[in-house]
Simulated assay, not measured.
Amino acid sequence: MRHAVMESRKSIVTYSSLEAQHLVRALYRALLGREADAAGLAYWTDTLVDGRLDLAALTTALTASDEYRATLAHQHAHAGLRTRVAAAAAAALAGSPLRIVDVGAQILADEQHVYAALAGHGLPCHIVGFEPIADKLTERRQADGATVRMYPDFIGDGNNHTFHLNVPDATSSLLPFNTALTGQLVHLSQLRTARTGQVATRTLDDVLDDDATVDFLKLDIQGFELPALRHAGAVLARTNVVHCEVSFAEIYAGQGLFSEIEQLLRGHGFDFIDLSHSCRYAYHGPFEGSRDRLGWGDAVFFRRAAGLAGRDLLAQAAIALLVYDKPSLAAAVAGPAHAALFAPEAA
């Protein structure tokens, strides 16, 4: 999108580059329904950092854009479809709520939980979360109360590992930073480890041994996703959708990359659909606004429809539409049994 320059010399709050970046990303998601492109992220981050705009002025600038108006029109056009699908799914799932498993379940200041739209549209949901950082576990319990069951387990491969508590703590990991790379990249070079300690991990197959369907499995454990998935074969066999943070660069030393995770999940019957979010970085030097290196993203995988029951297909359709705003995918996975929900004459 093209950005008009808006000058406002009065800034109420000053932001660090990292804080400004988080705010810009959050506004793009909230207002435009997408992740910030590299050029937009760099431009608006700089305007917040140097005080040319405050947060209110940035919001005004984005809502004045042609893209925002087009986004509103798109949302209005699909509002009836979302209402129909949500109502049908809520009725069908009344006795069998969507089961959401959130691995790395802390609350992030600049975004909602990715699956929040499901409960927001009235679908019954049962959420199981895993968050080993004690204060973040308490924060989530206090925020969501009885709507989520939280556990302090480190999810991994069942072995003991060194846990690196990092600053910021959302980057904490069972792996150390790959400083040979992170030291070269803007925003990553400022990350640091505050302390380390030995911890025991548990596998997903161990902690989720009740044979219940998992409709939405979200993994965000900072580079340890591949070992966790390798030890989750039984869970994956009864999972409908996987939302997994993946890396395209070795930010953490020894971590698995996107290609390995995609191959593993493909072998378990999943198709890679899209990246719902991606993050790029610039190398230090004279062009730090260019965001030239793809670092990581959130990858979306849907289990192939063959062999899935009608209840699972409707769950997939609801997730495709309400979480990811993908109406054609929703219609495709819903299948003939639910075709009436997507018929043009129903609009």
Rank of each mutant, 00 (worst) to 15 (best):
E250M: 03
H231P: 15
P176M: 04
T179G: 10
M150F: 03
H161M: 06
D153M: 01
R192Y: 09
T182F: 07
F130E: 00
G158D: 05
E262M: 02
L236C: 08
F163C: 07
D135V: 05
P124S: 11
R238E: 06
A237W: 10
R192T: 11
T182V: 03
D169Y: 07
F224E: 09
F163H: 14
F130G: 00
D157R: 01
V241R: 05
L226M: 12
E245H: 05
Q184V: 03
P227C: 12
H231L: 12
P227V: 07
R230T: 12
G122F: 00
I127Q: 01
T201A: 07
G145S: 13
D215N: 02
P124C: 02
F224M: 03
A232N: 12
D210N: 08
C244G: 08
A212M: 10
D169P: 06
I127M: 04
L181S: 09
L204I: 03
K218E: 02
E131F: 03
E262N: 12
L174A: 13
D215Y: 02
E139F: 00
T179S: 14
T138Y: 02
D169G: 01
Q184W: 02
D210S: 05
Q255R: 04
L165M: 11
A253F: 01
P227Q: 08
F216V: 05
A249K: 14
T201M: 03
V148C: 03
N166Y: 02
P124V: 02
D210H: 08
E131L: 04
T193M: 06
T147G: 14
T171D: 12
T182M: 07
G183Y: 06
N240H: 08
A232E: 13
S189K: 11
P152F: 08
D211V: 12
T193F: 05
L118Y: 10
T138P: 01
T147Y: 09
T193K: 04
L191R: 12
Q263Y: 13
T201G: 04
F258P: 06
L257D: 08
F216P: 09
S247L: 11
A143N: 11
L185F: 10
Q255V: 05
R195P: 09
L204E: 04
A117S: 14
Y115E: 11
T179D: 13
D209N: 15
P124Q: 02
D206S: 15
T182E: 05
G120P: 02
F248R: 10
